[in-house]
């Protein structure tokens, strides 16, 4: 601890020397026209570096202080305990009370969302399939999808009428 204090004193004296002696002297010289801006800038950075050195040393002294360590440790532990408690309380509230008043739980919402995503995916694959059929029909006119064949008067092969696929349900899903 004594070592740290002596480092801080060293840094402090450097800072005082540069900020309160060198810098004002350089400003005076610049005003009197006997020094240039570059020199003034150099001394300005020296002051900054001395200040950073002092700030770093003060941080180190703080970290080395057992009281600071003790307080930091306690603060972190308390914050984590509160966070844990809040998590447990939220889980109890949303897991038990929430469904009791008829509202969906997080898990149910997630399941619903996943179901919706799966339905969208299904819809997308249907749309791709339908597009592929259309492309195939336009590329080679001799190949006509079965459901179009019934519309154009061709009879179904198995003797049952074939209807074009309904898109009604898909629209509902998308909605």
């Amino acid at each position: 601890m004594l070592g740290n204090q002596s480092f801080v004193l060293d840094r402090l004296s450097t800072f005082i020397e540069t900020a309160w002696l060198d810098f004002p002297a350089e400003v005076t010289k610049a005003l009197a026209g006997v020094s240039d801006d570059d020199q003034l800038q150099r001394v300005g950075w020296k002051v900054y570096d001395a200040w950073i050195g002092l700030a770093n040393e003060l941080t180190n002294t703080l970290y080395s202080d057992p009281l600071f360590g003790e307080v930091s440790g306690r603060v972190i532990e308390t914050a984590l305990r509160l966070r844990h408690l809040a998590g447990a309380a939220a889980a109890a509230f949303f897991g038990n009370f929430w469904p009791l008043i008829g509202l969906p739980t997080h898990r149910e919402l997630v399941a619903l969302r996943q179901e919706l995503l799966a339905l969208r995916e299904e819809l997308r694959s249907f749309a791709h399939l339908s597009d592929a059929h259309d492309r195939l029909a336009s590329d080679s006119p001799s190949v006509v999808p079965l459901w179009k064949q019934t519309q154009t008067g061709y009879g179904p092969a198995n003797g049952h009428p074939i209807r074009p696929p309904s898109r009604q349900g898909e629209r509902n899903v998308a909605a």
Partner: peptide, 19 residues
């Protein structure tokens, strides 16, 4: 100096973080 703080992070804190 930063490592001095490690001494004050108890095993309870680590357990809480992982929990």
């Amino acid at each position: 100096p930063f490592y001095n703080l490690v001494d004050f992070i108890t095993d309870d804190v680590i357990e809480l973080v992982t929990r």
